[in-house]
Each structure stands twice: as structure tokens, then as C-alpha cells.
């Protein structure tokens, strides 16, 4: 999938949860991605993070890092 689009979508999600108070934005973002993103989308964004994650905002990087797909990648690496 077009990675720029996934990055933009992830950052949109990140922006929303970063504004919330009283909860960990990265956890909320990761939860949202797990609930609404199909596995291949999560895998692609995780791969993108593994490759440097260009364009991903701070808390989003954090969140993507917590995805099972990212952890599987790091295990593989």
C-alpha cells in the first residue's frame, strides 16, 4: 500500500490522541491501530518504522513500535 498515505493516516490518529489528557497517547494510538487497521496495513507501517519511520510523528512512532507486527519484526531482525 502507498506508505505515504498510511503515514498520513497514522499521524492523523496520533494528532487526535495526543490532544487527549489523562492517558498515554501511544497506548491509545496503538489500540486504535489494532482495532481498525487490517493486519497488512499494520505490517506495512511497522516495516516502515523499522526502516526509519520517516514522517511518523513522535507518539505515533511509539505506538507503531508497540504493535504486534513491529515486535514480530524486531524478533525477526
Amino acid at each position: 500500500m502507498e506508505i505515504a498515505k498510511l503515514v498520513r493516516m497514522a499521524n492523523q490518529i496520533g494528532r487526535f490522541f495526543a490532544a487527549q489528557r489523562g492517558r498515554d497517547p501511544a497506548a491509545a494510538i496503538a489500540d486504535h491501530l489494532n482495532k481498525f487497521w487490517e493486519p497488512r496495513m499494520r505490517a506495512e507501517i511497522a516495516t516502515h518504522l523499522a526502516g526509519g519511520g520517516a514522517g511518523l510523528d513522535g507518539p505515533v512512532r511509539d505506538a507503531v513500535g508497540r504493535l504486534r507486527e513491529a515486535q514480530l519484526l524486531s524478533v525477526r531482525v
Partner: peptide, 12 residues
């Protein structure tokens, strides 16, 4: 696992 949404289907 959640599936693809319409727009995601097109991308995929």
C-alpha cells in the same frame, strides 16, 4: 483481526 475498509481495499 479487523478486515479492510473500502478505501483500504482499493489501496490493497
Amino acid at each position: 483481526e479487523p478486515g479492510l475498509r473500502i478505501g483500504n481495499m482499493f489501496d490493497a
